[in-house]
């Protein structure tokens, strides 16, 4: 269930677009920011507010990789797996993260703190390897640097 406040914010979005359905994506984003992920019920409710079919809305939500359709940890770690990062040791970083957190790709730590996944190019090849934690980019990673970041985030 979306909160009344969130519903209000989503309705306010509708006026910003010529076609109401254009508000789907920012509305998804608001819901994800509020709940941590984008649940099927949230998609249906947003579809109703925006005035599109829920099937269409879930098609849109599933197309974009940055909407989490299943619950995730408080922090989502996305390690870049594209060429420059790989050459600069992204795979070692990933293995280190897996070992340190005790989870595989696509999983969440039992305490609900971290989820781990890979991403395509994060547009920072000059400072490879990089990872995105929530909305923050971390560059020039080494296993030691990763440990520091995790400690800072309270892992």
């Amino acid at each position: 269930m979306l909160s009344d406040e969130l519903r209000g914010e989503i309705r306010a979005l509708l006026d910003q677009y010529e076609e109401p359905r254009s508000a789907l994506m920012p509305a998804f984003w608001l819901a994800q920011q509020s709940d941590g992920h984008l649940a099927a019920e949230a998609i249906s409710e947003i579809a109703e507010i925006v005035g599109v079919d829920p099937g269409y809305a879930s098609g849109v939500a599933s197309f974009y990789t940055m909407y989490h359709l299943r619950p995730v940890g408080r922090h989502v770690i996305q390690v870049c797996k594209t060429l420059s990062c790989r050459m600069a040791g992204a795979e070692d970083i990933l293995e280190h993260l897996k070992a340190k957190l005790g989870i595989n790709l696509g999983e969440t730590t039992p305490d609900g703190a971290f989820s781990l996944c890979t991403s395509e190019c994060l547009a920072s090849c000059g400072t490879a390897p990089v990872m995105l934690v929530d909305d923050d980019l971390y560059e020039n990673l080494t296993p030691e640097r990763v440990d520091e970041i995790l400690a800072q985030l309270g892992g």
């Binding site: 079919d53 099937g55 269409y56 879930s58 098609g59 599933s62 197309f63």
Partner: peptide
């Protein structure tokens, strides 16, 4: 009629 939609990419 919206019977099908494409999902994923």
């Amino acid at each position: 009629e919206q019977v099908f939609e494409f999902h994923e990419r």
